[in-house]
Amino acid sequence: MTWVPACKLDDIEQEGAIRFDHGGRTYAIYRAPDDQVYCTAGLCTHEAIHLADGLVMDFEVECPKHSGVFDYRTGEALRLPACENLKTYPAEVIDGEVRVALS
């Protein structure tokens, strides 16, 4: 497991998400209402849509195109048309810097 520096916590709106590209892949990093950070695969499992463009409410993110919903803490697909879970990656904040463990 390699920890990769991603962004500052303040780069992400509270209860929001940003896109993070690394090593030819794309991810979404979320800042929850409690300021915890989470990281998932960046694209919806239904069609290749960037989830960071979607609305984050509480601990859920909604795909901006087809309204599939995921729990970004676990990656669980909560609403159709998304039915395949999202891959998740460890994320943490150290001194205001967000880093994610991409394997």
Binding site: I49, H50, D53, G54, L55, V56, E62, P64, K65
Partner: peptide, 11 residues
């Protein structure tokens, strides 16, 4: 651009 306004429309 792209889906940049999607979350505002959802709100």
């Amino acid at each position: 651009p792209g889906n940049s306004l999607a979350k505002d429309i959802k709100l």
